[in-house]
Amino acid sequence: MTVLSAVHQQLVETVQAGAGARVEDRVVPYEHDGQALEGYAAHDTAIVEPKPAVLVIHDWTGLREYPKARAQMLARLGYFAFAADLYGAGRRFDGHQESAAEAGKYYGNLDLMRARVRAAYDVVAKDPAVDPARISVIGYCFGGSAALEFARTGAPLAGTVSFHGRLLTHEPADVAAISGSLLITTGAADPVVPDEAIEQFQNELRTRPELDWQVTNYSGAQHGFTLPGTPAYHPVADRRSWREMVAFLEEVNNG
């Protein structure tokens, strides 16, 4: 298994693997429109039947350790987890300015954002370890926005989860094609996603009355509340949102 830093390994250890589990991981090269990409897959090879899959979309710093830790956690739960690479192989950022500039390229070109998630989805759907009828997508910060944008394309998803993502609204409403259920977790103290943004997003979802969605707002939680080792980390909101996601995935995959 990929060796993680202590703060992320501690996060992984909060999920207990099943008896006899053999969680393995690998780097997965793929591409989109000539851009080399480098994803990360983890799953329990002791489970021989095709598994439900979860795409994990990184925050604005790129595919670094954190989404890999989340992928390992999901693999311990029996999912085929694939941490997607939206930026390109080796494109990882430390600084706020560089990360914001890179993410801005995708916020300014939502078709590209959606297409990069689709490239990862296609890799996962073709993997023999995956049940292609049970694929979900989750994302953190920038990745939460990307997950929700991908859901708008009508991709056949079991479910979509956003953790402290920007809630982008569309005029006119663009929710007609969404397949599967939505879970949006956000922080009540997040200046990036204020109450007005949540209300506007919910109002767009309400234009399709039959759409299944839920928004959970955690008191005191700021932007990035699931990211350990950062000033925004909110352990209560992190634990609760993880448990909520686990229950959500179980429901949308198993009924």
Rank of each mutant, 00 (worst) to 15 (best):
M1I: 12
M1H: 14
L4E: 15
H8F: 11
L11N: 07
E13Y: 07
Q16A: 08
A17F: 00
A21T: 00
V23T: 04
V28T: 03
T61G: 10
L63Y: 00
R64Q: 13
E65I: 01
A71L: 01
Q72N: 15
L74R: 03
L74C: 04
R76F: 09
G78W: 02
G78V: 02
A81N: 04
F82N: 02
G88K: 06
G90R: 00
G90S: 04
G90H: 01
Q97Y: 11
E102V: 12
K105T: 12
Y107K: 06
L110M: 09
L110Y: 15
R116T: 13
V117T: 01
Y121D: 11
D122H: 09
D122G: 07
P128W: 12
A129Q: 14
A129S: 07
P132Q: 08
I138E: 09
F142T: 04
F142W: 05
G144A: 03
A147M: 02
T153M: 06
P156Q: 14
L157C: 13
H164S: 02
R166A: 11
L168A: 15
T169E: 06
P172V: 09
A176G: 10
A177P: 03
I178E: 00
G180A: 14
L182C: 10
L183C: 06
I184L: 01
T185R: 13
P191Y: 06
P194F: 00
I198L: 12
Q202S: 11
E204Q: 04
L205N: 06
T207F: 14
D212V: 14
Y218K: 02
G224S: 06
T230S: 14
T230F: 11
Y233C: 03
H234E: 10
H234I: 07
R239D: 08
S241G: 07
E251R: 09
N253R: 05
